[in-house]
Amino acid sequence: MAQAVAVSETRERKAANSARGRRAVDRLATGALWAMALFVVLLLALFVCYMFYLGAGSISWHFLTGLPSELTAGGGVGPEIFNSFYILILTLLMTVPIALAAGIFLQEYSRTGLFRETVQFSAESLATVPSIVMGLFGLLVFVQTLRWGFSALAGAVTLTLLNLPALMRVTQEALAGVPATYREASMALGGTKWQTIVRAVLPSAVGPMTTGIVLISGRIFGETAALIYTAGTSVAHGNGAYDFNPFHTAETLAVHLWYTHSEALIPDVDRIGNGSALVLLVMVLIFNVVARVVGRQLTVRLTGKG
């Protein structure tokens, strides 16, 4: 008996010794992972502060609403901000219905089969096309072949192609999150499949879908490379600057930020750039906050749960 106890004691001691070293490694690794995650967040905080520091001085009513200047200092970015929103809305008008329909089809109607596979693969491929390449496609097809010229519409259609896959995914995930019991209940009450989807399934998916749409809107708002050779790098002149004609050239704020730095002749490039970058950043932050708040509100209102 005494021997058995002794054996067990040495083994315990050995285990305890090795455990001490292993625990140290565990602590070290845990600490490192925490540090890395915190680093990312701090970096973001640093960026935001830095952008405010750089850009706050540029922001004025005149800057936000005034017309840009080609040669002299003191221009504003009013038409660019307008164009950013205008192209965003045009893009959403095309993206949302198509992505919604395709998402519903893949999630609710066609769970298997070659057609589904092909659509899914096409979507994944579209999602991976670099935005500059998509821009050149827009240039070839919409600007040149269809003769729309550099225009808000050419830009919007190009952005539609770029963002359809993401929104379709959002739709699919939102639908996948709706409990199967909702569908069964509606079908069991004699609803057709379409009635079931429209009345029982979609209302529960609206919350997460809205969050997704708003987040993607942020991305559309800031997209640049795909717009340079589709929507163009200038705004319509004079009183026509705030212009709803979809066939007029429509430089957005993000494009303006790039273009002023790379090509423009104005002396106050830095002022315009810092201000534009800050406006873009603030818009992204707003889109993120809105996405959260609105998505949660809608979910609560339409499904009665938090």
């Binding site: 315990e12 285990a15 305890a16 455990a19 292993r22 625990r23 565990d26």
Partner: peptide
């Protein structure tokens, strides 16, 4: 006592 040692035993 380390839970890791406990689970070892």
């Amino acid at each position: 006592v380390d839970p890791v040692t406990v689970r070892h035993r």
